[in-house]
Nucleic acid binder design. Sequence first.
RNA 1: GGGCGGUUAGCUCAGCUGGUAGAGCGCCUGCUUUACACGCAGGUGGCCGCAGGUUCGAGUCCUGCACCGCCCACCA
Length: 805
Amino acid sequence: MEPLYTPEGVEARWQRVWEEEGLYAAEADDPRPTFVVAFPPPNVTGELHMGHALQLALADALVRWKRMQGFNCLFQPGYDHAGISTQYQVEKALEAEGRRRQDVGREAFVELVWEWLRRYGRTIMTQFRRMGASMDYRRERFTMDEGYVRAVMRFFVHLWEKGYLYRDHRIVNWCPYHLSALSDLELDHVEVDDELVYVRYPLADGSGHVTIATARPATILADVGVAVHPDDERYAGLVGKEAVVPFVERRVPIVADERVDPEFGTGALKVTPGHDPLDFELGRAHGLAEPMVVGPDGRMNEQAGELAGLTQEEAGERILAWCAARGLLERRERYRHTIAVCERCESRIEPLISLQWWCRMDELKQAALEALRSGRVRYHPPSQHRFAIESLESAPDWNISRQIWWGHQLPVWYCPDGHVSVAETQPGACAECGSAELERDPDVLDTWFSSALWPFATLGWPERTPDLERFYPGDFNITAREIIRLWENRMIFSGLELLGEIPFRDVIIHSTVLAPDGRRMSKSLGTGVDPLQVIAEYGTDATRYGLMKMSSQQDTRLSYKAMDEGRRLANKLWNVSRLILGAAAGVSPAASPRALEERWILARIDAARARIEDAFPRFDFAEVADVLYHLTFDDFCDWYAEAIKPRLNGRDRDAAATAVAALERLLALLHPVLPHVTEEIWSRLPEREARLIVSPWPEPDPRFAADLDALERVQEAARIFRRSGVQVELDSDEERRIFAAVVKPERARVDGNREAEIERLRREVARAEGMLANERFTAKAPPEVVAAEREKLERYRRELAALEG
RNA sequence: GGGCGGUUAGCUCAGCUGGUAGAGCGCCUGCUUUACACGCAGGUGGCCGCAGGUUCGAGUCCUGCACCGCCCACCA
């Protein structure tokens, strides 16, 4: 064994061995209790990023811990087809050849996507393996697999039969590049410099005019009203009158509505239901028409009359020129504001009215709300639990149709009379009129519609497979904050709706890992850090340790120091193993710990085990890492290993055997966090039967619990000696032996300052005496607090006496 | 504009149901101690964001303020 632990090679080898030996496998006929993790399926075109790495580090540590505890762990891998994202990548590739998807046609384009995925997709599972994720890779699933598609179709038909689905004209966020509606959650918001123009709308009775402000003059053509706030005194007399829209010279009503902000612009708003979300609401509330003058391509449509075919900028200028010529253009001013853009292609979003499929949420979400309110499903931390409930309570109807080609096409057919037939597979004839001329709805489903089924569609639902019986409901899920509404809540309500049971009990919403400079990690900002590079530099074990250490509740900057700590921990462990294994050749591991330091370290290890068992169920991964670090460095290496070293050098076989036993327990505790280095060392221990990954988690060992503080006196004596050079009398030969082994007084050079140490202790004594002399403190503070203070005082006095004596 | 979180040592962060501030790194001082210099021992370093309040006692509880971050959002 080399003195420097090098993870390259070692980690890759164990990853291969574990998988080849089938140690990640979960089987439905395994009778042990199950532990099931629904892990977020990455995009099929995705690359590993820090978010994945963090989720894997945490989830895998938990899975490995549960596996050692004897659970039948299902940690399932798979891919999401990621409709818009994947389609966009293939479209970009097409564009490089000067073609667009419309040139290729739908069928050929979808075939191209499959072809593209065969070449460039599904690479991320290799990267999951490099994180040491102990997933059952034989079970890889894809949301476009044949069986999965059946589940999606069944879900749609189910919702249709329950009466939850409907079609409606609604205003949607339209991407003129993708030619599809996007959900609000697929938008980005960017600041732009625009122009705000003030235009006079003459009153129909000739008594004057009302001035509105707009950033989109082209949409004047689609105006159907003017709205003001009901309490706005400037316009009190105008409500109920009519105004004349410039250019088209249409008479429209002036209405009052509280949603109008009197502070903005002139306080008067032109109402354009066809091209603005707020106006759409206003239009519906006041019974106004919904004309549209901008088409799906973002240009003026045929309704724009003589302006048809122009860009919005061109049309706007024409309209403003018309107004200016008639004295209706009051002024134009610079205007900086935020607009919505497509998060994929950054095209400016056009709010358009279009016919979409919707899923009614009011009934569907009730069971999920109950499950959340009662705590049957728990988000961690609690603040996210509250947020999840609020999000679900206020969830609007779900727009489930997308106008793209890559995804699950709606199982909906129309006959020439417009009757709707919904079925899992193409029906022979229209359900209403029997017509055989059926045409399928061209839309595909929102990607999250299929993601919502992940915890059970991956187990074979809608078939009642052995896997489904065995592994549903599951236990655990982990994800980022922004996914709660998109995915988590939807898995919960779809699981309850289709199977009558929650998909998992606990959801971890992990902190965000920020770039080292505190900014968000993102490709566009160039602030992303590639986890594979971190692994290359520090090793997988160290990266896992570092990520766990950074997984506190608040968002944390990426710290290479944390990875470095992990690397040093692995190296320390490696070297103490060299010490022990070097002395253990040929010894039988049957050990009977008798010496003081042996009983002490076993008690310490057991106490650490208890703390880890407390921290894991609370999902306090940073605490787990911290306990392991200090157990290894402080207790195991600095005290125990130093104490037994002379005995090991003296060929004490009992000491060596006990050391192997203690090391064995230490390795077991460390395995969930540092799986590779621990397995490597484990494989070198004498008489190994099973791999560490499937070895049992240590049972509580109460034999030595009383020895937990057995070295306290020696440690106190060491501290005094090192600070002052004074050797305190110890009670037993064992204590004196350990003191000599660890402190080595004959070789140590004392640099501490005895006078300063005495001074410090005197101050402490005075402080404690002062507190105990305070009657209000001794009378009102709890007795155990006062007692603790007395104990401290006594210890200070004892140390002081030793120094002065 | 709404919601959530943060502000503790030079840096990155812990501090559970209030008991008199911790870790790792950094820095300083010693150590060629045959497991490890990715090491060992010791040390330096904090008006716990600001202002009030409750309490014998407040990073810890309450109120207000100031910054910072994240998520969400239809100001034309």
